[in-house]
Simulated assay, not measured.
Amino acid sequence: MPRSIVILLVILVVLVGGMFFLAGRTAEKEPVRMEKVVPLENLTK
Results as ranks from 00 to 15, higher is better:
Val10Thr: 06
Ala23Thr: 05
Leu12Trp: 02
Ala27Met: 08
Met1Val: 09
Ile5Phe: 07
Glu41Gly: 06
Leu8Cys: 05
Leu8Gln: 07
Val38His: 03
Lys29Thr: 12
Ser4Glu: 15
Glu30Ile: 05
Arg33Gly: 03
Pro31Glu: 06
Val16Gln: 01
Ala23Tyr: 08
Met19His: 03
Val6Met: 04
Glu30Trp: 01
Val14Pro: 00
Leu22Ala: 13
Asn42Glu: 15
Pro2Gln: 06
Lys29Cys: 00
Ile7Lys: 05
Met19Phe: 13
Val32Gln: 12
Pro31Thr: 04
Ile7Gln: 06
Gly18Ser: 14
Leu9His: 00
Val38Cys: 02
Leu40Glu: 15
Pro31Arg: 04
Asn42Thr: 15
Leu22Cys: 01
Leu8His: 04
Pro39Asp: 12
Leu12Ile: 08
Phe20Thr: 08
Thr26Ala: 12
Lys29Met: 07
Lys29Gly: 04
Pro2Trp: 01
Glu30Phe: 02
Val10Ile: 09
Asn42Gln: 14
Thr44Arg: 13
Val37Gly: 00
Gly24Asp: 09
Val16Ala: 11
Arg3Gln: 10
Val14Glu: 03
Gly18Thr: 13
Val37Leu: 12
Arg3Val: 11
Val6Tyr: 03
Gly24Met: 05
Asn42Pro: 00
Leu8Glu: 06
Lys29Trp: 03
Leu43Val: 14
Pro39Cys: 02
Leu12Lys: 00
Ser4Ile: 08
Phe21Ser: 04
Met19Val: 06
Val37Ala: 11
Leu15Arg: 05
Phe21Cys: 01
Leu8Trp: 04
Ile11Gln: 00
Arg3Glu: 12
Val14Ile: 14
Pro2Val: 01
Ile7Val: 12
Gly17Met: 01
Gly24Ile: 02
Val32Arg: 08
Arg33Lys: 11
Pro31Ala: 09
Val6Ile: 13
Leu9Gly: 03
Glu41Asn: 15
Phe20Pro: 00
Phe21Ala: 13
Val6Gln: 08
Gly17Cys: 01
Leu40Val: 14
Val6Trp: 03
Ala27Glu: 12
Thr26Asn: 15
Pro39Leu: 08
Phe21Glu: 11
Leu8Asp: 03
Val13Leu: 15
Leu9Phe: 08
Val14Thr: 04
Phe20Ser: 03
Phe20Trp: 12
Pro2Glu: 06
Val38Trp: 08
Val37Trp: 12
Glu30Ser: 09
Val16Ile: 14
Ala23Ser: 11
Val6Asn: 01
Met19Lys: 05
Ile7Glu: 09
Glu28Arg: 04
Ala23Lys: 09
Leu9Met: 10
Thr44Trp: 06
Ile7Arg: 07
Ile5Lys: 10
Pro39Arg: 10
Glu35Leu: 10
Val10Lys: 02
Thr26Lys: 13
Phe21Ile: 08
Val10Tyr: 00
Val16Cys: 04
Met19Cys: 00
Val16Tyr: 10
Ile5Trp: 06
Val6Lys: 12
Lys29Tyr: 11
Lys29Ser: 09
Gly18Tyr: 10
Asn42Gly: 07
Lys45Arg: 14
Val16Ser: 07
Ile7Trp: 05
Val37Asn: 05
Ile7Pro: 00
Arg33Ser: 07
Asn42Ile: 15
Lys36Pro: 00
